[in-house]
Nucleic acid binder design. Sequence first.
DNA 1: CTGAAAGCGCTTACAG
DNA 2: CTGAAAGCGCTTACAG
Lengths: 329, 329
Amino acid sequence: MATIKEVAAKTGLSPTTVSRVINNHPYVDPKKRKLVLTAMEELGYVPNSSARRLRGQRTNTIAVIISRIVNPFFGHLVDAMEKIAAERGYQLILCDSRLEKERELQQLELLKTKQVDGIILASLQNRWKDIEPYTRFGPIISCNEYDSAADMPMIVCDQEYGGYIGTKHLIDRGHKNIAYAGGTDRIELTRDRFAGFKRAMMEAGIPIVDDYLFPSFYGIEDGKNIFHRMYAMENRPTAIFAGGDEVAAGVIQEAKRFHCRVPDDLAVVGFDNQPLADLIDPGITTIDQPTKLMGTRAMEMMVDMIRHNREVTYKKELLPLQLIIREST
Amino acid sequence: MATIKEVAAKTGLSPTTVSRVINNHPYVDPKKRKLVLTAMEELGYVPNSSARRLRGQRTNTIAVIISRIVNPFFGHLVDAMEKIAAERGYQLILCDSRLEKERELQQLELLKTKQVDGIILASLQNRWKDIEPYTRFGPIISCNEYDSAADMPMIVCDQEYGGYIGTKHLIDRGHKNIAYAGGTDRIELTRDRFAGFKRAMMEAGIPIVDDYLFPSFYGIEDGKNIFHRMYAMENRPTAIFAGGDEVAAGVIQEAKRFHCRVPDDLAVVGFDNQPLADLIDPGITTIDQPTKLMGTRAMEMMVDMIRHNREVTYKKELLPLQLIIREST
DNA sequence: CTGAAAGCGCTTACAG
DNA sequence: CTGAAAGCGCTTACAG
């Protein structure tokens, strides 16, 4: 692999001048510039990025941490981020925390070891106090998930409102026995959604039944399990607000298998508005998250922070959430 | 950020010794080792990876190029790869070619500029002659897609067989008017699948109707379009072998909307066996690809090649494909 | 078991 | 407009 020295030798110029050509500096004799360019071409020269990183103290790489890449929601989020990153000349390192705290912390080390210029947290396994120490080493922002105790920029959706409109919709349809599959309390996002659920229920004067509340779940299989737990109840819920479209899809599929009609016997509301929600039968009423917009904004902000050395301070950017009504309610 | 020099200064030892501690070299006085460890701890020292990269000429980073991350097939493939990479201490750079040749070539440059130690091509936009020059700079292997003209290792499935069993299944169900949504000829994988289709048709003595052949398609919307093109025909096909489950899902959804019964009026076979295939109604008969196994094997092989400086030579590892029968046929 | 020195391949003040 | 020199932060022969 040719180095800058070899290019210099071949042209009879100094490495300094070659470097200036590479970096499009002004003040290089046009003839010499051309000479260098030809030599680079002939030698197949390409600058060594490790050397540039070490010298320049930048990596042009950004890490994004998600919790489960097989969740299509994250697929779309990452897609939007990758697009902006590529446009702006940044590489994307994909980190999957697999919902584990330790993995997330290890991935945050990338910033310390100077392997990335910044990190976007699209999921959050650790508390702010454990994440905060890393902010000293470069910009960290959150996108999708958030922690209001955190002193970092966040691009998020109004989850309380999402929880509210989904629940209100079920109430408006005449339901009172409403189950809720909410995710763990550990995550603020799910707490806020649940707060929206509670607000809607309270406004309507409907008591919340503990047995109808299901903890943290993520995939199709979890949806199936939840259905069975509801099905086994004496007093079955007539509706469920699931934590995501995959969970909702699992509920619906199993309901159909057990001849439980959706929405007549069981109404189902999902979350995310994934393509899946429109594909299965009946289509899933769900809360649309502006996934693409979130990813785009987060990456734009990250690049901006890296480029302008912007200070990392609290800033919450709220994006709109919207009820999409289909046949499952 | 503390450097190795500061650790050395603090301990009164040389950077050499500190380096040896960092890298777990033998022959370091246990007391001094402990001394260094404490100093590193106190200073919050972490080795700068750019310096290590430059010095060591390795990056511990692997790029994977896919063509469309929102395709759940790639989501699962990347998931399996990320798992192995993380286990082995490698970072994963995600590159989405978005089906564009130029982007893929630019992503291959990562190897030249020493930003990655190796590249896994999970999709292939360029011909071998355009990819080959990059092999000089590090290991490149393909996974999923392939090019038999290529002199590189490939972890792939027997697509011809996949095309064959899917088609044979439709023929066994009594179909003669079978449409095929095949992808472009540019890609060998799709050519092979199509060859399997043709073999099955020929064996059964069924002529292939040009109007029933649809070119390259990938998503749900494409499936919908294909349905409409078939629906508009005078002599409608009674079955279709779609290029992927998403396409199949689009066909099925639109068929239902137009009261075309699946499988009675139109039988549908997909490809990939994505979770989606089991979720929609009717479930999609499809060809199961061992996605996880492919990703795992590819990453294992890549790490092995990087570690042992294995020569990059042709080697085709064929994984099994399997027909999954559901209600769409 | 330990350290001084060289060098990985760049870029950037500095001097001219 | 150009070049010599220093230095980014490591690691690895080499010598002891």
